[in-house]
Amino acid sequence: MKIAKKSPQLMQCLYCIAGIIITGFFFFHNFPESANDAQHSIFFGIDLILLSTFLTIFLLFIITTIFGFTNFKAGFLNFLIGDTGTYSLSRLQAVIWAIVIISYQIQLIISLCSNLNGNYFKLYEPIFSESSMWLLGLSMTSYVAVKTITNNSLATDPLAFQRQKTVPEWKDMLIGANGLDFSKCQMLIWTLLAVFVFESKCFFFNQVIIAEQPVQILNTYKRMFDEYSDKNRPDDPSPYVPYLPWSFVVLMGLSQGVYVGKKLVPTFKLDDLKSDKQRQLTENVAQLQIKKDLLTKMSAQPVNKSSKVDQIAIQTINDSIASTQEAITDLSKDINQINTYLNPS
């Protein structure tokens, strides 16, 4: 009989629903009574962004449930697990941007439907700034590029394939082949900063959509920021369709380029190679002792002389001990050779 277990998917879904209920409550509780209120209620604006984010995540839950993907090892977080079986920064970026941009559309719909002057859902259009599309495109391209590079490297070294066996850890996002990876750290910081800036643009955009008359709303739809065009009017304080400056998009592109490029360049450091060999040596020495203990235990049992299986098993453990000893000898030789290169005198 199987006993029902709380799956990660179910628990995350419950947290998401709790988030929707709480932010939904504050949405109605703090709903502005006038345009002036809407412009000065910081908490309401943040709550609207959080509510739409929870709704977006909930939508993804519904889609994964409808299509039957409810048994992932990390539930919803499976979206962030890459081909090496652990959390991937490129996937995190792609998922974050997708959630941010979808939730921005939900904010737009909620704001139009609950406009202080009436329900203006008829004015809804899925409008996006070019820069937001470029950011989503960059993160998706980076995700596809990283997937291709990972799969190529696994094809040449199938034993590196961990096939959903490791316990995914958050730290894996920032760790490369040689420990903490600066290109990943800086890219994570830029991403978080970009999300913050974009959400702040959404915050001010929503204030207009929720409080103004249809004419101003339609005018705001047309306000696409272009830092290289004279049509921008610095004297007009009304917000633009949420965007990020092009210089920031270029910065993100360069950052992604370094991240993907670094994955294409093989890393080779003699010190790292040595420490890797030493780690293998330590593991093999421990394995040798365990196998010797197992042989002692097996030899202590009354071996059935007529049993072919017993004879093969004892021969196998002897062979295994011999091959482990051989591996230890080879590793010791390699380490000595590396030491000769590192300390030529």
Binding site: E283, M298, I312, S320
Partner: peptide
């Protein structure tokens, strides 16, 4: 799976303490 040998040894030690008999382990190519 390098840990299997230790697991087998540990399980056998536990069972031996409880008066179980543990014949030769059938391992790897056997």
């Amino acid at each position: 799976l390098p840990f299997v040998y230790k697991n087998v040894t540990d399980l056998q030690s536990f069972l031996n303490d409880k008066t179980w008999e543990t014949p030769v382990t059938v391992l790897d190519i056997a």
